[in-house]
């Protein structure tokens, strides 16, 4: 199945661009997408699945939209 992934912040430059379509097996979890993209961070990371915070072991479905980025910020 295919999952749409948007990377943000420094990840855009570290992992080859902002938008990615990732092919994963049925039953795949969020962590499998990170592995496919080569993202090794597992603690200091924010994952949004279809508009809500997600965890590494959350299951995925065809067409899910993920946003993945480190929890940085801007402005004081």
């Amino acid at each position: 199945m295919r999952v749409e992934v948007e990377l943000a912040g420094p990840y855009i430059y570290q992992y080859g661009g902002r938008l990615h379509t990732v092919e994963v097996d049925e039953g795949a979890k969020v962590e499998d997408v990170l592995k496919k993209l080569g993202i090794t961070e597992r603690i200091y990371i924010v994952i949004i699945k279809n508009g809500k915070a997600a965890k590494l072991d959350d299951p995925l479905s065809e067409g899910d939209k993920l946003i993945v980025f480190p929890p940085v910020g801007g402005g004081a």
């Binding site: 948007e6 943000a8 949004i48 915070a53 946003i67 980025f69 801007g74 402005g75």
Partner: peptide
């Protein structure tokens, strides 16, 4: 002038 929030960074 100053932006409110994190610009293009996702914020939920």
């Amino acid at each position: 002038i100053k932006g409110v929030g994190f610009g293009t960074l996702p914020d939920f």
